[in-house]
Design a protein around this nucleic acid. Structure first.
Lengths: 204, 204
DNA sequence: ATCACTTTGTTGAGTATTCAACATATTCAT
DNA sequence: ATGAATATGTTGAATACTCAACAAAGTGAT
């Protein structure tokens, strides 16, 4: 039985090895720019030339780490919406639970990105992403949906609070469990949030 | 930094994936001959053609599993002799401890080979190997090294007792710890064995 | 025993990775 | 500021793996 996607999977596997090597080196070195391509390929046990098949340079690889981080969060938040457009809340918001579980599963990635103090700030990216997600894809219904409350201001609160909690958790090296984190985060705004609407039903 | 051995390591890695897939299928299927090449390569996520680059057929792959098992045991027994020709015993025979630790580390391999009831019997092979090892490479010194005791008869006892204990352990699904196993095995003949001599010092 | 079906072993063309070599950049010590 | 050493990016030839296709052998149901 032949599998036509195998070549793609093998390429992806190679990239994963390169990424993991890079993440490990960041966590050891604390300085992205002092890490050489050779170090990355040596660690991942590939020829240096192989790196350039997949990435233009170190920044290109780093950029993919950011995209992986954001996209992973995207998927974990969207997961409860498979097959249903609206998610009603009882206790912990399902997306929150999956969100923290996802981050913990990839804690090395997030820890590494947290260490990079420079220009591309993972938390700024996360704020931007969540803002877009909650304004375009997922709409949050609230008890106090009266005329005088402005959704954009509510989003500002929601997004910054969420990112702030995540940031604190990563900085504190994940000392709290995912359950505690999602319970706490949910409790912070559960008296206002009733349900979450997924606007595009055409995706799984 | 280029590493000229990388190509060899990559080939070895591919073979390891194929072997592990085969081992898993044996443990699931209980019948080597009903397992197809396609199943093996599918499980290991390789193209079927890749199999034939490394192995002639299923039997060839199986043969390598046997050799891996025997060679692994060989290495673990020989390990205490690095840099010294003679190992004196105090309590547990060092080789015994490493022997059981090695088997437990590769328990899936040994369990799979144990399942194969057919012609190539892993325990017969093990007996033959240990016999050769203890008659050619490692000499066992005993308290009662008098003229009237014949070393070949002693070896017969030693080898069959050792393999018998290993066999029981594997059949019982490794329910006893490696410490208990090596202690027990050592105690069975420690009153006779004083030291073990490694005959060829020229290997590390 | 026949026929459909699966497995086997092989082949050729295409892609991924390896390796050594090279010319440029960059880094670093003096 | 200079020179030595290291890192970067690229190239061409070799090897490993992928994929689709094929003929031949084996399997299984009727």
């Amino acid at each position: 039985m032949n599998n036509p996607n195998r070549q793609m999977r093998k390429k992806q596997l190679t990239k994963t090895f390169l990424k993991n090597a890079f993440i490990d080196l960041i966590l050891e070195n604390n300085n992205v720019h002092s890490i050489t391509i050779s170090e990355i390929t040596d660690r991942a046990d590939f020829n240096r030339g192989t790196f350039y098949i997949h990435y233009q340079d170190k920044i290109d690889l780093l950029e993919e780490l950011y995209q992986d981080a954001i996209e992973g969060i995207h998927q974990s938040i969207k997961k409860p919406y498979r097959n249903k457009a609206k998610v009603f809340l009882n206790g912990v918001i399902p997306s929150n639970k999956l969100l923290f579980e996802h981050i913990e599963k990839h804690k090395k990635l997030f820890k590494a990105l947290d260490r990079i103090e420079n220009n591309p700030d993972i938390y700024k990216r996360l704020e931007l992403f969540l803002w877009n997600l909650f304004s375009k894809e997922i709409y949050i219904e609230r008890e106090t949906d009266a005329k005088e409350t402005r959704y954009d201001i509510f989003l500002s609160f929601q997004v910054h609070a969420t990112v702030g909690v995540i940031k604190y958790w990563i900085k504190k090296d994940f000392i709290f469990s995912t359950s505690i984190m999602s319970e706490q985060l949910t409790s912070f705004y559960s008296d206002k949030v009733i349900a979450m609407n997924f606007k595009n039903q055409n995706l799984d």
